[in-house]
Amino acid sequence: MSASTPGGDAEKISKPVPVPDESSREFFEGARQGRLMIQRCLACKNYRFLARARCDVCRSPEFAWEAASGKASIVSYVTMHQRYHAGFFDELPYPLAVVELEEGPRLVTSLVGVEEVTLKAGMPMKVVFREVDEGVFLPKFTPA
């Protein structure tokens, strides 16, 4: 078989790359600079993620972007076994988690450095950034 066989091993399918849009530009720009950016309501100081046009506590439209501390803890975790996207086939089975930031909001994340770790709800984690495409960085979490 030649290396150019369609569908052969030579054609490594890459993972989906996140595409910033208007409401997430600050988030991805922050990630590029190693900062985990979330929104904070200027009226009631509540933090939120994902980005929202209004605060879901006090309804204020006024907000600012702030860098989160990057400290978090595990809320839930799973191990992906099903073959969904060819870019991930090599890594199956792999873990994912929902973490709760120190500031309150929760987010879905892939994990780094957990091969020898038994995951548990409440486990302290911290953010790390990984370049997934030229100039595109993804915040991930690793045991603190």
């Binding site: 996140p18 997430s24 890594e91 792999y94």
Partner: peptide, 11 residues
């Protein structure tokens, strides 16, 4: 695009 694309990027 945007945040929705984050989920797929994480797998």
């Amino acid at each position: 695009g945007g945040y929705a694309s984050l989920l797929h990027a994480h797998g």
